[in-house]
């Protein structure tokens, strides 16, 4: 039942993207909707600038949230090591491209494969052996794993921030008075690509359908001959891979260091919850929404409180809709502590 709701959500996503690429229409709408009278050109470009900043942040939250959802659907737990996958992806990419001077596409593949292996190892050695899993116990295990990965990353990559060259040129592009980095376009593009791959995988491949079946009803899926343990492993592999990609694409902009994981993870968790746990399309919308809210709050209210404003809105949404924007309350009941 988690999956039925996809279509309207994808539609709203389309609107968001359409509005970006058909900017003049948007401009007119902003003029009409926000103030009711003509605004100066610079106000429009400011809004656009904040939107770019917000969408860029939001894409990363969204990618982290998809990772959370994959594992949540398979196991019912929140994987606190999700942020660590992002960090390892970023750091590995830095080593491969900046130290070993590999071409970016090759490094991209190697890094994703490497982090996917870490995800599989994590599932095999820490989640799979647990005989009587309870949600809280598994969560604490993921916290322990995140501490270990963080410690290992610190020993291996040291404590400094690492920076990496942009995928393409670092020259900014002008866009109706606002500026955008080519890297941001890469981020948006890769997010869209992942979403497309995600929809294809879960709707048109056997493995994907098996994973969905497990997410909806694990016992029934097992009765139908699906190896649910294997699906759990697969979910860890995929979510680690997606985490790695998030790390890879964001590192040129933010610089990566070993300690960033927890914060990225918490933001991603917020996006996953706001979108409705288990609903990955909801997570994408929610992730971008949180990013944009933060940027607008920083731009128009106060940079001191920008994170708090996004959180307050998140809480208010939860109070009104206890299962998130796009989550169903029935699905929520299935997986409790």
């Amino acid at each position: 039942m988690i999956w039925i709701q996809h279509d309207p959500v994808i539609d709203s996503g389309h609107i968001l993207l359409k509005s970006l690429f058909f900017y003049p229409v948007l401009k007119k709408q902003i003029r009409k909707n926000i103030t009711g009278r003509a605004m100066t050109e610079s106000t429009i470009s400011d809004i656009l600038q904040f939107m770019f900043m917000g969408i860029q942040r939001g894409c990363i939250y969204a990618l982290a949230a998809i990772g959370f959802n994959m594992i949540y659907n398979a196991t019912g737990i929140i994987n606190f090591a999700q942020g660590e996958f992002v960090v390892i992806g970023g750091l590995m990419m830095v080593t491969l491209t900046m130290t070993w001077n590999l071409p970016i596409p090759l490094a991209f593949l190697l890094t994703t494969a490497f982090v996917t292996l870490i995800g599989i190892a994590m599932e095999r050695f820490t989640i799979n052996p647990v005989k009587h899993p309870t949600v809280l116990r598994l969560i604490i295990i993921t916290i322990a794993v995140s501490i270990i990965i963080k410690g290992a990353a610190m020993c291996f990559w040291g404590k400094n921030s690492h920076f990496m060259r942009h995928f393409s040129s670092a020259e900014t592009l002008d866009f109706y008075g606002a500026t955008i980095l080519p890297q941001t376009i890469w981020i948006i593009g890769i997010l869209l690509f992942i979403v497309a791959g995600y929809i294809f995988f879960f709707n048109y491949t056997m493995t994907g359908k098996c994973m969905r079946a497990c997410a909806i009803n694990r016992d029934a899926a097992r009765l139908a001959g699906i190896n649910d343990r294997k699906m759990v492993m697969l979910s860890f592999a995929l979510s680690a891979g997606i985490g790695a990609i998030a790390g890879i694409i964001i590192t040129p902009i933010i610089q990566m260091d070993y300690a960033r994981g927890a914060l990225l993870g918490i933001k991603g968790f917020g996006a996953a919850v706001l979108g409705g746990l288990g609903n990955s399309m909801g997570a994408i919308i929610a992730g971008v929404l949180i990013g944009v809210l933060e940027a607008l709050a920083a731009g128009y209210i106060s940079s001191h409180y920008m994170d708090a404003i996004a959180l307050i809105i998140l809480l208010l949404v939860l109070f009104v809709r206890p299962s998130g924007l796009f989550g169903s309350s029935e699905a929520m009941r299935l997986k409790e502590f």
């Binding site: 919850v273 708090a308 959180l311 998140l314 939860l318 206890p322 009941r333 502590f337």
Partner: peptide, 26 residues
């Protein structure tokens, strides 16, 4: 908050803690 359950409750309490922390900083 106490109407929420499971991970939603976890996120709500986490959000509350972050807000208090942000206020103490800002």
């Amino acid at each position: 908050t106490m109407r929420l359950k499971g991970h939603y409750l976890a996120m709500a309490t986490l959000g509350f803690a972050s807000i208090v922390h942000i206020v103490s900083v800002a």
